[in-house]
Structure formats: C-alpha cells, structure tokens
C-alpha cells in the first residue's frame, strides 16, 4: 500500500525511523545515501483517512483555534498557503500532525499539549484536504475550503514532498503574464 511501509517492509535498514526504533515522522526529503524516498508511518493516522467527520470537525477547529487568522481559508497570509502542492515540512497527514505538535521555527506555534491530540489529527485532516482536487473543485466564489473532501488513503501514497501527478491541484508551476 505505501511505497515503503514503515518499519517492516522494504530495505528498512537505511530508514532513520527504523534506525532509531521509533515511529518518528520524517521531515526531510534528503536522507543521505537512500536510493528512494522514505515514507514514515504512524499507526494513529489510519482512522483519519476517508473520514468525512474528521475534515468537517477540523474545519470548525481551524476557525476556533485561530488557524484561519494566519492561513485564511487555505490561501495563507501571515502563514503560508495550505491549498497548493508545496509542503515545506511534508504534506502527508502525519507530517502535518507533527508540524502542529512541534511548531516550526519560522513562526508556526507549537500546539502539542495545548490542544487535544485527536483535535490536532482532525485539524491535520482538514489541512490535508484543502489541496485535494475534490475540495478545490467544490470551491464556490472567492472563499475556498468550505466543503472539504475526506482525505483518501491513496492521496498520501508518497513521501510528502512531491505528490504524484493528479493527486493535487498544481497551481503554482506556471504563471503567465498580464
């Protein structure tokens, strides 16, 4: 199912996650010497795929915890856009969750211990949903992400930095002049 399913499939010996014997989520696409992208896995993530309730609850929480103050309705502002296909710290659900828990040095607050973990997963599911073609197709007018599609399991069938063609809306690759 996954390209490299965590600790028990493929050449696990060269994965940092297995080396340290934990469920660490990988935050970099650069792993010295590795011949393919590493995919980390967190068993807690499974229940948030194909889960309409998770993205809808996440949408509500996104407003209540002021995420929307920085990321707007996915287009960004004080914080980066979440509805394109560029992921600084990885765009798979568990990578997004990790970003929410730990915060990030350029201004993302650390929410671990401040917000119940289940809610962080629900928020992650909503954030992951924003760039799904189905969510973008449902946009009506100038406010996106109002009808978030559940995150299909196969949408995260990659390492988190370069979603396979067709799994996201590629908006930023080409800009044309006036």
């Amino acid at each position: 199912m996954l390209a490299l399913g965590g600790c028990n499939k493929g050449p696990a010996a060269d994965l940092p996650a297995s080396q340290i014997g934990s469920q660490a989520v990988i935050d970099s696409a650069l792993i010295p010497g590795l011949t393919r992208s590493a995919v980390s896995s967190d068993p807690r993530v499974a229940q948030y795929y194909d889960n309409a309730d998770a993205v809808n609850t996440g949408k509500r929480l996104f407003g209540q915890y002021n995420c929307s103050g920085c990321h707007s309705n996915g287009g960004g502002g004080m914080g980066p856009s979440l509805m394109d296909d560029e992921w600084i710290y990885g765009g798979r659900l568990e990578q997004i969750h990790q970003t929410l828990v730990e915060g990030r040095p350029n201004g993302m607050p650390a929410w671990g211990g401040k917000v119940p973990d289940q809610q962080l997963w629900q928020l992650s599911a909503y954030v992951r949903s924003m760039s799904l073609p189905a969510t973008l197709a449902a946009q009506n007018g100038a406010t996106p992400s109002q009808t978030p599609a559940p995150v299909p399991r196969e949408a995260d069938d990659h390492a988190g930095w370069s979603p396979p063609p067709g799994t996201t809306n590629d908006y930023t690759t080409l800009t044309t002049g006036p």
Partner: peptide, 16 residues
Amino acid sequence: GPVDPRDGSAALGMVN
C-alpha cells in the same frame, strides 16, 4: 508571501 491568489480572503482579504 507567497499567498495563494485562489483564496480571496487570504492576507486579511487583500488578495481578492
């Protein structure tokens, strides 16, 4: 930003 021009409410509504 970069900010996504598809979200008119982005950057406190300026993007629209």
